[in-house]
Design a protein around this nucleic acid. Sequence first.
DNA 1: GCAATAATGAGGTACGTACCTCATGTAAAG
DNA 2: CTTTACATGAGGTACGTACCTCATTATTGC
Lengths: 340, 340
Amino acid sequence: MRPTTKDLAKHAGVSLASVDRVLNGRSGVRKSTIEKVNVAIGEIGFVRDISAANLARRKGYRFMFLLPKSGGEFVEGIVERIAEANRAFAVDRVQVDVSFLTENDPHSISARIDAIGVDQVDGVAIMAPATPQVRDAIARLRARGVSVVTIVSKQPNDVDGQFIGIDNMAAGKTAARLMGKFVGARTGAVIVLCETMQALDGRERRAGFDAIVNTEFPTLRVLPSLETHGDPERVKGILRNAAGASADIAGVYVTSATAEHVIPYLRDAGMRADTVVIAHERTPFTERALRDRSLDVLITQNSGHLVRSAIRTMKARIDRREILTSQEKVRIEIVIQDNL
Amino acid sequence: MRPTTKDLAKHAGVSLASVDRVLNGRSGVRKSTIEKVNVAIGEIGFVRDISAANLARRKGYRFMFLLPKSGGEFVEGIVERIAEANRAFAVDRVQVDVSFLTENDPHSISARIDAIGVDQVDGVAIMAPATPQVRDAIARLRARGVSVVTIVSKQPNDVDGQFIGIDNMAAGKTAARLMGKFVGARTGAVIVLCETMQALDGRERRAGFDAIVNTEFPTLRVLPSLETHGDPERVKGILRNAAGASADIAGVYVTSATAEHVIPYLRDAGMRADTVVIAHERTPFTERALRDRSLDVLITQNSGHLVRSAIRTMKARIDRREILTSQEKVRIEIVIQDNL
DNA sequence: GCAATAATGAGGTACGTACCTCATGTAAAG
DNA sequence: CTTTACATGAGGTACGTACCTCATTATTGC
């Protein structure tokens, strides 16, 4: 049987009331008493029964996910996972809501974050581009006592355990090695497409990609990044130009979650059928593309894991508990048609 | 606020005692009353608060993992994850123990399973070779009221949700496609090594491997499987023979978790440096091998996820709850040096 | 219509923790 | 030495559920 507060009180030689005062950080306790209780906690290995505590507090956890409105299928997938998690975490008194960021500029986003009511929410998971304004708004929100994690896009001030997502530099390196291997003996150019050069994620992936190609696959020529802006017409033009300028395009790398705006137009732009295509983020579209072989490799992160990990991390912080780091690390997944 | 048993009683127009009788399946309740309560459950969306219930029952969950004694680093890793999980699930009153199977023959294993005391354990996770004897022993254990899942090795009678692990056929296909792509323009032979041909897992992987190589990479010649029996000396001989017989060995595929008995001896056996090596299961050894490039690709399953998934599944079955299938699906992970 | 039996309700205690009140203890300040 | 402030203990109630007892009501068989 696990020791209870009663056992703790007995072992520490104090009353239950004092144990309660120490455990919950109430005032009016002598330092020596606090010490006695803490020593006893270590000695008998007391761990607070959180479910009983929550029952007594009749308290739950209200979490909020702040996601970009125009995030495409990837964000839609996250929203679905949140709905699932809502059901799965209901037994733990966790309730999760989603709120969308219609704004794009850092100022409006930080205003939205500042407007979050501390009495309405216990934790917030934010997916937003890394900017100084957002970074500061997050710091203010934390200062107001809210448990905040950032997901997918790492913010510069995130310390250990506050960011849930993958290392994008490593993801880019992974893409590069697979590109090099899959292209094989062919030599030629690699087109790199991103939604916008603004996004830090895409830039990091690109940097990782270049690092590996330059050192390990010097016969490949990586062309400057092209921006899609999520606009199919623009993409068609870009691809035609690229295919025209260099006839020997061996690979296409789509660094951001915008594969659906690129892959359908590759064939029409005159790319060879054996051009190696690598993209990011698992969505219904990219799954279909893997199956019909218009996509060779997908580099992704598990969005269900992302969501649950964010929830567990916010909850652990509120409960002042340690997290199981190995469980919360989000892995860079490689998906091909066979391990879909 | 979530509805409680009190709300349920009021809504159903019965007493709390009757609600209790219905919820816990006690006798002495008219069918019409049971019906009234069940209707009310649906109407107000009552969900039993499991943590409060467990608190009242002062009940925990005692789970046991039954693992092969001689499982190498892979099983050692699982044991470590179990220790971690023990800490992480302590808040849910879950306690996990490990027991090793020193026996190898199906009869002794099934005897061990039969010897498990129903009053000592609430759930058992079994990792054992698929045999009719083991299958039947598991069925008997289930009949005695224990929540049983099988891990890593699927048993033939496992129905939906009772097996936690990967699809080995798909894992073999994945290995094959990466072998084909990594070998690239080279043609030649592929050596396949397994610990023993007895194991179903290895045979399934081999079947998947052959299927893809035959249809997609016909220039590769896959040689008959060679058994290592975990014996380095034997392996050295095997490799020398193989290298001697066909000079053009382009790839090596190790289907079972026995990479540590193979990879160190490839170079000495006279394999070319660019021979593509693919193996299974992430362990300290295979991680090192990826880093020092003696291994190109690792196909693996996340053992931490495996363990937690087994625990969640056993627990959900005991609580008569649904599991979140998407969370419990174990993915086939591809690891290269960049996404380690 | 009566007894026998089955079904139901009312009310209690317990689980481990939080949070409250009130009485009593002890040490520092005057 | 007294006053005051602070520290501590004792005891209660509550959370949502399980499980128990006992009294009361409804239903069945005869």
